[in-house]
Design a protein around this nucleic acid. Structure first.
Length: 452
RNA sequence: GGUAACGUGGCGGAAUGGUUACGCAGAGGAUUGCAAAUCCUUGUAUCCCGGUUCGAUUCCGGGCGUUACCUCCA
């Protein structure tokens, strides 16, 4: 579609027209998981949001013109700690969690990014970057640690609207004696014997958090690129520190657009381990088709906080049930009308787009095959209705507690009761089946059933 | 304390300087043994107080409220 894309840039906080550096190519980096524990639905949100942004960008610039990099951070203090707690090796932990992350991505029907680099495979780049920062006097070494000197970067705090003096005043973080200033952050630190380590000019050790994203975005996208994304909580300190490192090391501007998704809350409370209200993605595997979660996750605009609930999932499931009735696999190339697509171009307004899909559904439900194909294409575009109806049904069948034979027997019993005008018994049977998730429909002379 | 975001009907959730999408739930009707499903019709909302304006829910200021970030976090 020959319309402009608009995005809300966290740097400045305004909705802006999106102009890539190269008018024909887009480069996007999104912060991926630190693989220390199974991904939860909070992690699912950026996965789906940026997957849709990826699709929208490809729609405008062409499939091969968009590079999407999403890292896997497989070395970090949290990982070391988690491995200790679980009493397994770091290697096994990171492999397991990475695996589990990929399963979740498949479940949520997210496309693979163009590149998915791992931190541990790029340590040398980080060492290189630290060397440059030291040379440029943006960093200093002390007792085998290397720190970034925040006072050396005048734009520090611009993304998160903070000024350094306030950070000093409000610093609650335990300040290492090695640091010149409390707000400085670590680029390299020594490892204990039982912790993973790499050789470096400052001794055996490991990189500080934040550095992997600066190093890997440079490797795959260059010093300056178009979009950098992630959850809101990453704005400070993670992204602020990335900006500092990258700009000082490369002496160029870093990402032009910063896109951040809002949080998921449970009963209006933040999901946190301390609250005990963390829902892992895989906890939903058995009960819900991944499409249901996907639709639920985009039913709110990406910037907004969203409250997670069973009701939300029930509604999403119901909607998909309805939509699947009109699914028709497009034959040949089918275009989504510009008017219907436009909300996605306007700061990724997924609820607005969903609203348009509802309208396309209404049209399709009483319209031609072509209308059904347009409707289905519109759903497919955001990763919905991509699997055949039979698969959707099958999933529902698998979670049933009643066998098909039993259902058919009950229907037979009920129809006998109906023939005998024993409607009370007939209703009882119907309600019994309904309790088990089976919906009966009497159409013409035949009784059919489907899963609620 | 600092920095932000948000406050739209019963619920979820868009948009907008002048008729406030869409979905769910509700109501009425068609249909039905009664239902369900489906179809048709339909009611209901912009936190409060000022300002700008012919006109504000939208812009500005103040208040109240909710939430997040400032420490690991998506």
């Amino acid at each position: 579609m020959n319309k402009d894309i608009y995005l809300t840039n966290s740097l400045g906080g305004k909705k802006e027209i999106f102009k890539p550096i190269d008018p024909n190519k887009v480069k996007m980096y999104v912060c991926g998981p630190t693989v220390y524990d199974d991904p939860h639905i909070g992690n699912a949100r950026p996965l789906v949001v940026f997957d849709i942004l990826f699709k929208v960008l490809k729609c405008k610039y062409g499939n091969k013109s968009v590079t999407y990099v999403r890292n896997i951070t497989d070395i970090d203090d949290k990982i070391i700690e988690s491995a200790k707690q679980k009493k397994i090796s770091i290697d096994i932990l990171t492999k397991n969690i990475t695996n589990s992350f990929h399963n979740d991505c498949d479940y949520l029907n997210c496309e693979k990014p163009s590149f998915e680099p791992k931190a541990t495979e790029n340590i040398s780049l980080m060492v290189e970057m630290i060397n440059v920062l030291l040379k440029n006097k943006n960093a200093y070494e002390k007792n085998s640690h290397v720190y970034f000197d925040v006072s050396s970067f005048k734009d520090y705090g611009k993304l998160s609207n903070k000024n350094i003096d306030e950070l000093k005043a409000g610093a609650r973080v335990e300040v290492s004696e090695n640091k010149k200033n409390p707000e400085d952050f670590v680029l390299w630190k020594p490892s204990n014997k039982d912790e993973p380590s790499w050789d470096s000019p400052w001794g055996k050790g490991r990189p500080g958090w934040h550095l992997e994203c600066s190093a890997m975005s440079k490797k795959y996208l260059g010093d300056t690129f178009d979009i950098h994304g992630g959850g809101r909580d990453l704005i400070f300190p993670h992204h602020e520190n990335e900006i500092a490192q990258s700009r000082c090391a490369n002496n160029k501007s870093f990402s032009n657009y910063w896109i951040h998704n809002g949080f998921i809350t449970i009963a209006n409370e933040k999901m946190a381990k301390s609250q005990g209200n963390i829902f892992k993605i895989k906890d939903f595997y058995q009960r819900y088709n991944g499409q249901v979660l996907r639709l639920a996750l985009i039913s709110t605009h990406y910037k907004q906080a969203m409250d997670w609930s069973d009701d939300l999932l029930t509604q999403s499931k119901k909607t998909l049930d309805k939509w699947y009735e009109c699914q028709k696999k497009p034959e040949g190339k089918v275009l989504i009308p510009d008017d219907d697509l436009i909300p996605l171009y306007d700061d990724l307004n997924t609820p607005g787009y969903i609203s348009n899909i509802h309208k396309l559904y209404d049209k399709a439900a009483k319209g031609s095959d072509k209308d059904k194909e347009i409707f289905t294409t519109a759903c497919n575009f955001i990763g919905l209705l991509t699997e055949p109806k039979s698969k959707w049904q099958e999933f529902k069948k698998n979670i049933l507690e009643i066998s098909e034979e039993e259902i058919l027997q009950k229907i037979k019993d009920r129809n006998t009761a109906r023939d005998n005008k024993n409607y009370q018994l007939a209703d009882e049977i119907r309600n019994e089946l309904l309790d088990k998730g089976i919906l009966i429909e009497d159409k013409d002379d035949k009784t059919t059933w489907k899963i609620k």
